[in-house]
Design a protein around this nucleic acid. Structure first.
Lengths: 165, 165
DNA sequence: TGATTTTTTGATATGTTGTTTCATTTCATC
DNA sequence: GATGAAATGAAACAACATATCAAAAAATCA
């Protein structure tokens, strides 16, 4: 089971998370012959500023502090679209928000655990769960192409009385 | 496995679907000492006009033809909120749209199969799937409270070359 | 019944999220 | 440095959702 639930919910050196995410993004862009432009890089960096899903207009607000000049919504959405296509981020439909993918490139399907208390979201890719989802679809005669699984509840830290990461 | 995938995707007497849904709504409102007012009833009826998720502003547009007089967005959202609370409809986050629940009252969790071709959505409640989701959460130390599972792909009718229901 | 309280609806405005369109700039390639 | 493709700027707009306060309707009860 691939998961980033430890780092998402517990204290950790988050600078390394960010650095690793940007580094993976460089690799992936190189492999895809795509350009990680300053805007795209800044958007990715903002999304990775913590483990909470970030809305597009929050990015619009915060971009000047990273880029220097104001960036309008369409540019932000273009960067988001680019990052989505490369699998570097995911969209959480129930929140209209975006979150960094901790393991881009690996074949996995979107399963998120979103903590109602601290707002952090962890992603996991559980083979068994995906298999059961596939089987269930199959039995219903449904040809599964993609999936979004959003689980809401309390993360380990918040459940145990902590205040989250 | 509770599911309405047959009626959602295949030819059937849909008038009976609507009548049954309204009848269940009456029951459920009576049990909850809540009022199924004309607006709420009309909104539910519109959502049940077929098995495709319906957006709030489509409801706003269509309501006059059911109610007679125009109804603004806030009233529609109030009706939607009411129906959601009673479990008579569900919200599909990825589409900003609403769909009737085929088995309100039964303890079940939201799993939807949305056909990318015909747009119809079937709901199912698969014990095994829910159990695996619960186990997966547990293993990650996550206290699961609610879930939304949206599966996208091709329904049986569209997969077999048909045009859907 | 009539007064009181609660629930529901009306109406206006506004907030939030996402897209269209077209012009301009930047970049890679030749 | 000319050319075509990719990326960005800028303004307007479209779609989805909520805040607020007033009015009406319904339930409750003296």
């Amino acid at each position: 089971m691939l998961s980033n639930s430890r780092s998402a919910y517990q204290h950790h050196d988050h600078q390394r998370c960010i650095a690793a995410a940007l580094s993976r993004a460089e690799e992936r862009c190189a492999a895809a012959r795509a350009r990680l432009t300053p805007i795209r890089r800044a958007v990715l960096q903002l999304i990775w500023q913590n483990h909470r899903p970030l809305g597009a207009y929050s990015i619009v607000e915060q971009l000047p502090s990273v880029i220097g000049s104001p960036i309008r919504a369409p540019s932000v959405y273009r960067a988001i679209e680019f990052l989505l296509e490369l699998g570097l981020i995911h969209r959480l439909p129930s929140r209209n928000a975006f979150i960094g993918c901790p393991f881009p490139g690996s074949e996995h399907s979107d399963v998120f655990m979103v903590c109602r208390h601290c707002g952090s979201a962890a992603e996991l890719s559980a083979d068994h769960l995906n298999q059961v989802i596939a089987e269930t679809s199959e039995r219903a005669g449904f040809r599964l192409e993609s999936q979004t699984v959003e689980l809401s509840g309390l993360c380990a830290s918040c459940r145990d009385g902590g205040g989250g990461p």
